[in-house]
Design a protein around this nucleic acid. Structure first.
Lengths: 224, 224
DNA sequence: CGTCAATTTGATTAAATTCAATTTTCGTGG
DNA sequence: CCACGAAAATTGAATTTAATCAAATTGACG
């Protein structure tokens, strides 16, 4: 567990790591309450409607959060990558969280927040960032074309995964579609167009996609 | 100012009143730091990009928050009604906030949060609710038809305004359209259809709309 | 009463969905 | 290692929804 929290701390990013803000002494204290968790592809971290008594720091792997309307229509709320904090909600989970790959998380009981004001403050910052990012996403859904949404998604994911040459996308096309408010066929067509124009490389069977020119993606994503 | 905070406290709702959670002694302390603010229609509370050093409790009136893409496309992020807390963000405002009516607010410096853990905790709850509501909205934008979005908007606004027989809608059709990711013409057509079917009454010149049967609206809003 | 802006309504167009068919990928077992 | 079957992704054609363009109506305000 010691190693776990250290790794969690090492992954620190401006984005939203719960431990990122804490001084060593605080982290020391956190060790006592944080739990370890490992999941495989398809495993459920929590379900919609379930009570929330902890948040999770994602160390390794990719997690997807989604909601459903009664008639089956699905909205994929977010994809999470290492360093992200998952499970932030008001007493009851509104979404279901599923692992898309092998995943390793550390579990932080909400009770720990009441005991540590610095942790609670960091939690608020994370909630604020999540809110800002949800509003950005709403702007994309409400005001961007299909092509723009796909470009923005790739660009955003690229940024969040460390701006490497290649992107690892373990989710299915249908998941991306439900994230962007589109149909899988539409997402597929957008990918094909981007490939044809040389803006993205081929999508390898393992989910790896090459991004030769993120700058061009940016221009196509409606002033991202 | 005393009366202001009392009113703010009196407006308490489960929804998101900053003062709602506080015991009288806390509120007493808040009096020392909270400021009063009054705006008229069209006045700007804050702009996008501006640093955020305070949040605002809305006592009276309606406030609209919006963002813009570089090419002019606009997303109306939210409408706020009495009892709401406005201005929650990560250090810099991502939206512009404008008064749609005469508005009265109390201003709470963020510094006050550092001094009062209970206030900070309430702030976190408010951020979490705002996040949940932003995700709901994203679901609507991504997965609902134009008619469903309009019904959901009316229903949601009706709930937030105290479930009265009539609804006060001081915003323009274009504002609702930019909120729902639609064009004004489309929103207008949806309203006309609802009127034709007797689901809403006439929209009076002062912005008042009668809602004879919220239950039917609910059924039309995609399992709202 | 006249002007301007906002809304409403109508006709046409464009974008994305839907339906359908084909190809590719992936897991399983021979 | 290769063949087979199921699931996913891709591509094509038709349809639907909402956007766009355009005109008429309504309402606010001097």
């Amino acid at each position: 567990m010691l190693a776990l929290i250290d790794t969690c701390h090492a992954t620190r990013e401006a984005r939203g790591n719960l431990c990122a803000c804490l001084e060593p002494s605080r982290i020391e204290r956190l060790r006592g309450v944080a739990g370890d968790l490992r999941l495989g592809p398809g495993d459920v971290l929590f379900r919609a409607g379930q009570g929330a008594d902890a948040v999770f720091g994602l160390r390794q792997g990719v997690v997807m959060q989604s909601r459903r309307l009664a008639d089956g229509r699905r909205q994929v709320v977010s994809f999470h990558f290492p360093g992200d904090t998952i499970g932030l909600t008001d007493d009851t989970h509104g979404c279901e969280a599923v692992a898309l790959t092998r995943v390793s998380l550390c579990r932080i009981p909400l009770a720990a927040l009441d005991e540590d004001p610095a942790l609670a403050a960091q939690m608020r910052r994370i909630a604020e960032r999540a809110l800002a990012s949800a509003l950005e996403h709403a702007l994309a859904l409400g005001r961007m074309t299909a092509a723009e949404r796909v470009c923005r998604f790739l660009l955003e994911t690229w940024r969040r995964c460390g701006r490497r040459e290649e992107l690892h996308l373990p989710m299915r096309v249908a998941d991306i579609a439900d994230h962007l408010g589109l149909r899988p066929e539409t997402v597929s067509r957008c990918f094909s167009d981007l490939r044809r124009d040389g803006i993205v490389g081929v999508l390898h069977p393992d989910g790896t996609l090459e991004l030769p020119d993120p700058g061009r993606l940016s221009r196509l994503s409606g002033q991202g």
